[in-house]
Amino acid sequence: SASLEDVKTAVLGLLVILQTKLYTLPASHATRVYEMLVSHIQLHYKHSYTLPIASSIRLQAFDFLLLLRADSLHRLGLPNKDGVVRFSPYCVCDYMEPERGSEKKTSGPLSPPTGPPGPAPAGPAVRLGSVPYSLLFRVLLQCLKQESDWKVLKLVLGRLPESLRYKVLIFTSPCSVDQLCSALCSMLSGPKTLERLRGAPEGF
Rank of each mutant, 00 (worst) to 15 (best):
E162C: 07
D82L: 09
S48A: 12
P113S: 08
S186D: 14
D82V: 11
Y166P: 03
T193D: 06
K8E: 14
F137R: 01
S173E: 05
A54N: 01
M36L: 13
P174S: 08
P26W: 02
I53T: 06
T31E: 15
P191I: 09
L43D: 10
P52S: 07
L22K: 02
P161T: 14
K154T: 05
F204H: 04
P79D: 05
E97S: 11
E147K: 00
G83W: 04
V177F: 04
A70D: 02
K105M: 12
P52H: 05
A200K: 14
P52A: 10
L15Q: 14
M96L: 13
K46D: 13
S48R: 13
Y49K: 01
C175H: 05
P109L: 11
H47L: 10
P116E: 11
E5Q: 08
R198S: 10
T20E: 10
G118K: 14
H40L: 00
S148V: 10
R159A: 07
V168Y: 06
S189L: 14
T106P: 15
G115T: 11
K154D: 08
M187T: 03
K192G: 14
A70Q: 02
S189C: 11
R165V: 05
Y45A: 00
Y23C: 05
R86M: 07
P191A: 10
Q146P: 01
K154A: 07
L155Y: 06
V177H: 02
P52E: 12
Y34N: 01
D178W: 03
R58C: 00
L18H: 01
L4A: 08
T24D: 08
T50A: 10
S28W: 14
T50H: 11
R127C: 14
E35M: 12
T114H: 14
S72W: 10
G118S: 12
L12F: 13
L67Q: 11
K8N: 09
L160H: 01
S56P: 02
L22D: 01
A54T: 06
Y34P: 02
L73C: 13
K167V: 02
L51D: 07
S148Y: 11
V7W: 01
E5M: 09
S28N: 10
S28M: 09
T50K: 08
P26L: 01
M187L: 13
H47E: 09
A27L: 05
I41S: 00
F137S: 03
L67C: 14
L51Y: 04
P201E: 11
I57K: 00
P191K: 10
K151F: 09
E147H: 00
L128T: 11
V84N: 12
K8H: 09
C143E: 00
S186F: 07
A70W: 02
Y133N: 03
Y34T: 03
P191R: 12
R127W: 07
S173P: 03
E195P: 06
A61T: 14
L184G: 00
Y166T: 06
L110E: 14
S102G: 14
C181W: 05
T20L: 05
L76V: 15
C175W: 03
G115R: 12
L78T: 06
Y23I: 03
V139E: 05
D82T: 08
H29I: 02
E195I: 08
M187Q: 02
A54P: 01
T20D: 08
D178R: 05
K46Y: 14
K81N: 11
L169S: 04
S130G: 14
S182H: 14
L157C: 04
F137D: 02
E5N: 07
H29T: 03
K81A: 14
L153Y: 02
G129H: 15
T20M: 06
